[in-house]
Design a protein around this nucleic acid. Structure first.
Lengths: 196, 196
DNA sequence: GTTGTTTCATACCAATTAGTATTTTTTATG
DNA sequence: CATAAAAAATACTAATTGGTATGAAACAAC
């Protein structure tokens, strides 16, 4: 990787960390260049505006991460119910990328940016739809192989699962404690079993 | 109401509107005094700091609203399953206080403030716990009167319901469209019926 | 109507914000 | 090594931020 490409990536990664923990608005360019040890000239050579960098974080960090670490693992699921549970359980309790008190990066950005920044909305919606379609797909496959009841509606289930995930992450933030995740997961397991 | 108490309330209400639609950080004191037509002197006479005002919004606007408009209505429920459904349905589709594209005020503040402002965390946690305990209580009562299965865990259900609500509101924000609420509510109905 | 307190108005401030203009260094290519 | 382009460093700006200092109305009690 060229040195320039490297500083660009450094900016994206460190900026992501800051934004994930502090929020987008409250993370200033000065914050970013201070923690990255990159000068303002370098920053604005790589990104025309702060928002351009924000979109780049979604496209170049969040999207690939989501794809690799929790879409691909369930994509060819033989055991959808278990795999859906494991996906959420992994995200809540194990993913090293995520921290209880900072919630879900995608959820955070959605909450913060969505009502007034259409660029962010578009990028985030793409990302979320990708996840949702994957869930819908494996539900459908599970129905075809008889593992999930035929009368279940995949779209409904996908919305329900993702909503629950986003919501409980907000709870985790509020309580700054993952014990609510344990409780949530128990009910989630029961809910999933109800789809059989 | 005295004139002074009136300006104080005006500030709180208008500030709430701004914060609900734009976020806390991005709502400046200048924004608030511009839309309220109240001078900075008046503002800082009533509130020592911006954060003091923020807490006052939670205590004096959000808390009473929540109590009156969606805790009391279900508190003495004879039909918990239906009433829980109606509560969420009302919040998503009818409550004039709320708008699709701005999400849930409590959820928004939690997302934005919680990782770094303990005062806000505390006030929001109290508020949320109050809602949760109400849900737990009516589940328990429903179990006692045989309307909900005995093996159901009320705490789990309460977490599950509230998480789903917070999550789907974030979806509504993202899509700026309440059609996802309709889909969500269908699955929510099925989930609730599974508790019987 | 004088006096004291509550309430509000005005003018300011230092710090921070995103972004720019300009120059310097680094790097690749002949 | 020379040169041009890419990459980065430095110094700045205008606007906005939360908050303050100080004084002026409004209002109550006597």
């Amino acid at each position: 990787m060229s040195k320039a490409a490297n500083t660009r990536l450094t900016i994206l990664h460190k900026a992501f960390e800051l934004i994930y923990s502090k929020g987008y608005q409250t993370t200033s360019i000065d914050d970013i260049i201070a923690t990255t040890q990159v000068t303002k000239g370098a920053f604005y050579y790589h990104f025309k505006t702060k928002d351009e960098m924000g979109i780049a974080i979604i496209e170049e960090i969040l999207k690939p991460t989501m794809l690799e670490s929790f879409i691909q693992p369930i994509e060819n699921s033989q055991n959808p119910i278990d795999d859906l549970y494991n996906m959420i359980s992994y995200l809540l309790l194990e993913d090293p990328f995520l921290e209880v008190k900072y919630g879900c990066p995608v959820g955070n950005l959605t909450q913060e940016m969505t009502p007034w920044n259409t660029q962010f909305s578009k990028a985030l919606l793409e990302l979320v739809n990708q996840w949702m379609h994957t869930i819908q797909k494996i539900i459908l496959e599970a129905q075809n192989s008889g593992l999930v009841r035929k009368e279940i509606n995949g779209e409904q289930v996908a919305f329900f699962i993702m909503s629950g995930y986003w919501g409980i992450r907000n709870f985790g933030k509020l309580q700054n404690n993952n014990s609510c995740y344990i409780v949530y997961l128990k009910e989630f397991r029961d809910y999933l079993n109800g789809l059989k």
